[in-house]
Write a protein that binds this DNA or RNA. Structure first.
Length: 667
DNA sequence: TTAACATGCGCG
DNA sequence: AAAGCGCGCATGTTAA
């Protein structure tokens, strides 16, 4: 048993005295975002020694602190130079503010928080107003942009210029952009720059605060900023691979790839099948496949581009699935192309990287999470670029698209520990049903209606009890397409999409009302206050609205994965600390609707209890107090899996719904 | 030679 | 006439 033994366990939650203030008191209060109106805040900005690169991120030990400038609540501006142990004054000022219910203001606060952690600040105490996130909230989906409109930058400089304020000193900015290590820059220049950033961040904060209050979006900002310290802590951890499993998997895939490549060379005479151009030529010119066509007889192609004004011919897996091969050669090529594409992607994107990590980096790699990238406001992730001697190049892998079949290659860093994953059950569907208060959706969720079985029965013209296992499996891809506005496909698919819309009439009406609203105002205000903008929304002469699919999708995706899950992650992380288990339950990853932890085997029960609480009752309470939303139409659910490796076939599993009144129902 | 674009594929 | 959403990374192609 470890040190946590000293704590008392009450109702499955470990009670500790040291951490009784870990959940900021105001989070239990209605309209907690009012905390941001307090004048008890500290504005800060750092410059770092970027020796390792990666923009001076604190996760690299060979990057270092160089300069901190901060403004205290009484208006004093201070500066300190030196490494991470030379800023005791700063840390003391931060702690003073945070321990008296105040907050820190910074542009891209996660960066500063990670450095503050290295300087000794307890991240569980951290509470921030991030001006980069505030700009992102104000912009809704406009920060991300899309193929029709350029994204709007949320950099500090651009936030200032947008407001007609002076921009950064162009000389220092140039050096920064060119990747010059700030250590090499004249100190007076750098301090001037850092001081400017603090001044501008402060000014920006006040401007954003009034805009957010006026448009009732301060509550959305709170949700975003509560997650920031959680991510800051998680990024230090990284994920660990099981070297033996990686090795044997790499060998298996390499052997398989070489076989496939040999067969491919034999069949094609040595074309480069990885080239979409050569693959299309072989497919359509040599093998004489006919292109798939639309209803009007014109071929289905990739969207026209500057380089391919006619649209290039399709060679992707979905297309190959639909082609009807007749000759032996055609059958063989379609099969080969499909398999070698998958095997090649597995090797080049995952297994080579994993192999490098195991051979040269001790089996652990890191990724970053980004809070200001996506149109919907869910998170995105990028890998930390990593140089490998064995490949002579830098490679990178992010945390949110690791192939499912390779999840069992991940294990906990410490011997005997477990990987535990909790996810929100059917989260986007429940998000839609809640927002629409859909009656059939509610019944289906509560009764445990098998949605994929319903899809299969419509697609295959059979009764529900005549649906086979294979039919159900094949139907999965179609089930939620209509939830995001999907309407096209084969006659059977279209029939199913209509059946879906008819089955859940309130969802259909809700999405139509969103589309109507966007056509009129070019804008949509969601139930929780976030606003999305479609300045180019237009009705065609046939009545089709050009933004139908994104309008249908954004609020559904966002409520689930940009609101509910971040809230759950925040409470999960704080509850672990509250229970004194922060050294035994370690948050390492989150993938849109889930959290992945490394857990000491003695604390799996506590992990389950905390995850259940955080993903359900804590979310209900927060939605109520922060947004005045009663999420009592459908229950939230949590699925849990745990074992020696991530998502392993023999892991234990538990799934339950927890109703608004606290009633639990194990599935 | 390098950078940007285009395509395909991984995840939820 | 024709319509799932959101991302990031590897590779090939082509413009600069």
């Amino acid at each position: 048993m470890g040190q946590a033994e000293q704590h008392i366990i009450v109702n499955g939650i470990t009670d500790t005295s040291n951490a009784s203030n870990s959940l900021p008191w105001f989070l239990y209060e209605r309209e907690a975002y009012g905390q941001y109106l307090s004048s008890n805040y500290l504005v800060l900005d750092f410059e770092t020694d970027t020796s390792h690169g990666d923009f001076g991120s604190a996760i690299h030990p060979d990057n270092g602190m160089l300069l901190a400038v901060w403004r205290t609540p009484d208006g004093a501006v201070k500066a300190s130079w030196g490494g991470e142990y030379d800023h005791a004054d700063l840390v003391a000022d931060c702690e003073k503010v945070l321990h008296s219910g105040g907050f820190l203001v910074a542009h891209n606060a996660k960066y500063e928080l990670m450095w503050l952690k290295r300087m000794g600040l307890n991240l569980y105490d951290a509470f921030v107003f991030d001006t980069k996130i505030a700009e992102y909230v104000l912009l809704g989906n406009l920060a991300a942009g899309d193929e029709r409109m350029l994204g709007r930058s949320t950099s500090l400089n651009d936030c200032c210029i947008r407001r007609g304020w002076p921009g950064k000193d162009p000389a220092v900015d140039r050096l920064m952009r060119d990747g010059i290590n700030p250590v090499e820059m004249p100190r007076s220049w750098l301090q001037g720059r850092c001081k400017y950033d603090v001044d501008m961040t402060h000014r920006l904060f006040k401007d954003q605060l009034s805009l957010l209050v006026r448009t009732d979006r301060l509550k959305v900002l709170l949700t975003r900023c509560l997650l920031t310290p959680v991510l800051a802590a998680a990024e230090f951890n990284g994920m660990a691979l099981d070297k033996e499993r990686v090795n044997s998997t790499f060998e298996d895939y390499t052997i398989r790839f070489n076989e496939l490549q040999r067969e491919m060379d034999e069949l094609t005479g040595g074309i480069n099948w990885k080239s979409p151009k050569q693959a299309a030529e072989f497919l359509y010119d040599t093998l004489k496949f006919r292109e798939l066509t639309k209803k009007d007889g014109t071929p289905k192609r990739n969207a026209p581009t500057a380089r391919n004004p006619e649209g290039s011919r399709l060679t992707d897996q979905k297309t190959l699935d639909k082609l009807r091969p007749t000759t032996d050669e055609q059958v063989k090529f379609v099969e080969l192309r499909k398999e070698i594409g998958k095997v090649n992607a597995a090797i080049s994107k995952s297994l080579k990287f994993f192999q490098g990590v195991c051979k040269e980096k001790g089996g652990i790699f890191h990724a970053q999470f980004h809070q200001t990238t996506t149109a919907t406001h869910r998170l995105s992730s990028t890998g930390v670029p990593t140089y490998f001697e064995m490949f002579g190049e830098t490679k990178t892998a992010q945390f949110q698209n690791l192939p499912r079949q390779f999840k069992p290659l991940f294990k906990a860093k410490r011997e005997g520990w477990l990987i535990c994953e909790a996810d929100g059950s059917q989260l986007e569907f429940r998000s839609a049903v809640h927002q629409a208060r859909d009656k059939q959706g509610r019944e289906d969720i509560i009764s445990g209606h098998d949605v994929h079985r319903f899809t299969a029965s419509v697609l295959n013209h059979v009764a529900l009890d005549e649906v086979s296992k294979g039919m159900r499996q094949n139907a999965k891809a179609d089930t939620f397409k209509p939830l995001y506005g999907g309407q096209s496909g084969t006659d059977d698919q279209q029939r199913y999409y209509k059946a879906f819309r008819a089955r859940y009439p309130q969802i259909t009406e809700m999405q139509q009302s969103w589309i109507d609203e966007v056509v009129i105002s070019k804008r949509l205000i969601t139930e929780w206050g976030l606003r999305y903008y479609w300045p180019y929304a237009k009705v065609s002469q046939y009545g089709y609205v050009n933004v139908t699919t994104s309008v249908s999708n954004y609020p559904v995706q966002a409520f689930a994965t940009a609101e509910i899950i971040p809230i759950a992650l925040f409470y999960f992380w704080h509850r672990v600390y509250e229970a004194g288990l922060q050294d035994y339950i370690i948050f390492v990853n989150t993938v849109h609707d889930s959290v992945i932890c490394e857990v000491h085997p003695d604390y799996v029960e506590e992990w389950k209890e905390i995850a259940t609480q955080a993903f359900t009752l804590d979310v209900y309470r927060y939605l109520e107090t922060n947004y005045n939303i009663q999420f009592d139409w459908v229950p939230l659910g949590v699925g849990m899996g745990w074992g020696s490796h991530w998502s392993d076939k023999d892991n234990d599993e538990l799934e339950m719904n927890v109703y608004y009144d606290g009633r639990r129902e194990i599935k």
